[in-house]
Design a protein around this nucleic acid. Structure first.
Lengths: 243, 243
DNA sequence: CCAAAAGTGTTCTCGGTACACCCATGT
DNA sequence: ACATGGGTGTACCGAGAACACTTTTGG
């Protein structure tokens, strides 16, 4: 665990950056990863038992999509991940003055100063699919940790972030029924059994092996490579996306 | 045709309202209507041969959804229409200083003053489905007219509004394949042949009558009412949504 | 009684579902 | 050799697609 900034520094930083960003607009990124049969989400720890989604603001010189990509890059050091804008959270209840004030007080800020990030935000929701093995998660300035969590056993989350994650998962599932995008969670080379398990983890239910394989071949986007070596039992083929 | 406001009044109005809205966020509404086999979109006329989408800004006291509903109400005097948020247009190219300056100059404004609406906007795209017969379209303060246009024969459009309409149509079509929402374009009571033609207009292609009817019944959301009276040939049943 | 619209039925195909069968490999 | 995992094949079912048949009405 890394020691976060103190309140004074944080307040300075926010003040200095205010004019660079579009006000009232934020980006929330639900970064999905996968490991050993488990669908996971990347979260930032804000206090002992509370976590939050990675997210950020939009520079006046960049598009909203670019802001999401940049934000993800800052968290896991990966560029050009699969990214999809899936919802907008624009309720008036997304005014978190009080909650954020409490959070800042915890850092030692007296709360007397109104910061621009305490305004109401319209948040653009994105979900990303990444190969966890290629990531280097790191906390931001005010987080204690940055870690992967099982999607089906989420910890206590800040504000409405639980709703945002669940809606991202729902969108991901819907998309996955018509597109084989699940492969983005694996490395470039993968086997059908691996991909099969990814799909089962996302949908959280069993799916017939045979049918799955036929469906994947039906998309005609996977190229069969050599067989996997040195494993017990019959050796599965490797596949990769592309042609 | 109604005479629009002059430039001075307009500038005053915009200045006065600035602090009420969330800056940099706008809402674009693609309002779909239907009449006699034609899918239509409501547009506002900004000059002799240029049209634009209805749209507006978000009050600090309302949600983005509410802003869209209010905006649509202001244009066609209908509340609680079917409404769906389908995309976000967040490119940096959505900074229309020059184009809007020209537009204002046309109204007589010298363009020396920078107005807040000339900033870059992140636009939240909504599409609405309405029963055209229940609408009373009216232009806003700077439009010459407000009228329905065939979706497949669009006039010259402002900025990136054509792209926004086409993407709305694509979303509507996708949604229509899994939901019978097309009925929102008709009056409360409608016949299957009418609904059938709505679907054909939206998809812009023929669809077998028999299959269509079976699919609609499959949703089990339409209630069969009395037969339509006083028409030639066999009289079709009326249906309505609900139970 | 006939043309045209509306409602319903028949057939074919294809993709989802379940399951069976065969292949290959390390223990 | 055999248990286990991996690849492929078969039979069934339901939805989509194309088309045929029947009913009903005004002229």
């Amino acid at each position: 665990m890394k020691k976060p900034m103190n309140a004074k520094e944080l307040v300075q930083l926010f003040k200095k950056s205010e004019h660079l960003f579009l006000p009232n607009i934020s980006v929330d990124s639900v970064i999905f990863g996968y490991e050993q049969g488990q669908l996971q989400v990347l979260l930032l720890q804000v206090d002992e038992n509370t976590w939050m989604l990675p997210g950020g603001y939009v520079y006046k010189t960049e598009s909203v999509d670019e802001a999401a990509h940049r934000n993800i890059y800052e968290r896991i050091a990966l560029k050009n991940t699969f990214l999809k804008q899936y919802a907008v959270f624009g309720g008036v209840d997304r005014d978190f003055k009080l909650k954020l004030k409490n959070m800042f007080q915890q850092f030692g800020h007296d709360g007397s100063e109104e910061l621009w990030i305490q305004q109401r935000f319209v948040s653009i929701g994105y979900y990303a699919l990444v190969d966890k093995a290629k990531t280097y998660p790191k906390p931001n300035l005010f987080a204690k940790a940055c870690a992967w969590h099982n999607v089906y056993e989420l910890p206590k989350l800040l504000l409405d972030h639980k709703k945002i994650i669940l809606k991202a998962l729902a969108s991901f599932r819907t998309d996955l029924e018509h597109n084989p995008i699940g492969y983005h969670l694996l490395s470039t080379k993968f086997t059908m059994p691996e991909l099969h398990q990814v799909f089962e983890s996302v949908h959280d239910k069993q799916m017939d092996r045979s049918r799955f394989q036929k469906k994947m071949f039906g998309y005609a986007v996977f190229e069969r490579l050599e067989r996997k070596e040195g494993v017990a039992h019959r050796r599965p083929y490797y596949y990769r996306h592309g042609k």
